[in-house]
């Protein structure tokens, strides 16, 4: 049963749109799956390899702009940006990794954060290529209905999931975890930590980049403040994984469901919309203090709480 769980969930997700959901519900579903894919990509680098990145917006944005520039400058369909972004973002991650992977722990975190910000400022300043702060508008959308977009992102997310699962269960995955647990010990056992950290960074970056390229196609409009956003992309990515469960296969999906629904819920309650970052921040603080490994990671702990309470109720 457990072995087939991914396939069962994939099957459920692929027939879900056929039951006739509204356009809004489809939009939410697409967002959930897109964020789950980004979360899984982050989880590869942050959760398994232990390199907590605060700058995944950089990869997301570079992927999005690969698509956008293809359309804006060359007049090619932005869909080509999805395969192309793999190449572009991988090269970009390679360069970035050369700089940021010299740092460890919190310093790595902040260096990546700075990278994301720098990408935003650079994009704003090179207007001849990127359209500057005006952004890029894709004038002709491919489809009006959301079915096509849904299946494309589902394909991307499923691909990401199985790729990461395969990787983590291979030798490479054990190397990653060894680096996370103790980099010096891993190094002394003959693991080329720089090489494997670079691999993790490039893969994680490329997978995030594809999601970014999809975003351009789906939303039809990008600007530097949206795709390189610190809070709305980088931090939300971390929160999705933290809430769902660090270094778990299903954590990012659970986290994405919770975060996207929470964001929509906050938006629908009047007067609360402005406070969404406060609520996210409080959720983050609560999760870190009480469930440091996320809902999936600390599932045993949650179960225990309910089990302990159950007999007490019986006694009463």
């Amino acid at each position: 049963m457990k072995k087939y769980l991914p396939l069962i969930i994939l099957a459920i997700l692929s027939i879900l749109p056929l039951i006739g959901l509204s356009s809004y519900a489809m939009h939410i579903l697409i967002l959930v799956i897109m964020w789950a894919a980004i979360g899984m990509a982050w989880n590869l680098l942050g959760g398994y390899c232990g390199q907590v990145s605060f700058g995944h917006a950089a990869y997301f944005g570079v992927g999005a702009y690969t698509s956008g520039i293809l359309y804006y400058k060359l007049g090619i369909s932005p869909w080509w940006g999805m395969p192309l972004s793999i190449v572009v973002v991988s090269l970009f991650s390679l360069v970035l990794g050369f700089i940021v992977l010299r740092l460890r722990g919190p310093f790595f975190a902040l260096a990546t954060l700075a990278m994301g910000e720098v990408m935003r400022v650079t994009t704003e300043n090179i207007g001849w290529l990127t359209g500057g702060t005006l952004g890029i508008l894709i004038q002709k959308r491919t489809w009006v209905s959301k079915f096509g977009y849904y299946y494309i992102i589902l394909l991307v997310a499923a691909g990401t999931f199985f790729l990461i699962k395969k990787l983590i269960e291979s030798k490479l995955g054990y190397y990653f975890v060894a680096i996370r647990e103790d980099q010096d010990a891993a190094e002394s056992l003959g693991i080329n930590t720089t090489l494997y950290k670079t691999i993790a960074l490039c893969l994680s970056g490329a997978l995030t980049g594809i999601a970014g390229a999809f975003y351009t196609n789906y939303m039809g409009y990008i600007d530097p403040h949206v795709v390189f956003a610190l809070h709305d992309i980088s931090i939300v990515t971390i929160m999705i994984v933290m809430v769902g469960g660090v270094a778990t296969y299903w954590g990012p999906l659970v986290g994405a469901i919770i975060m996207v629904f929470l964001a929509e819920l906050i938006r629908t309650i009047p007067g609360l919309g402005a406070a969404h970052q406060t609520l996210f921040g409080i959720l983050l603080i609560v999760i870190i203090i009480f469930l440091p490994n996320g809902i999936v990671g600390d599932f045993a702990k949650i179960k225990k709480i309910f089990k302990q309470e159950a007999p007490r109720n019986e006694l009463n």
């Binding site: 959760g47 907590v52 605060f54 722990g105 971390i238 970052q277 409080i282 983050l284 870190i288």
Partner: peptide, 22 residues
């Protein structure tokens, strides 16, 4: 708190910053 990622404290300060700014 015992957790997989030692960067939890850093992420916590991000949360504090978000709340303050918001």
């Amino acid at each position: 708190v015992d957790s997989i990622l030692p960067e939890n404290q850093v992420i916590l300060t991000v949360g504090i910053g978000m709340v303050l700014a918001n």
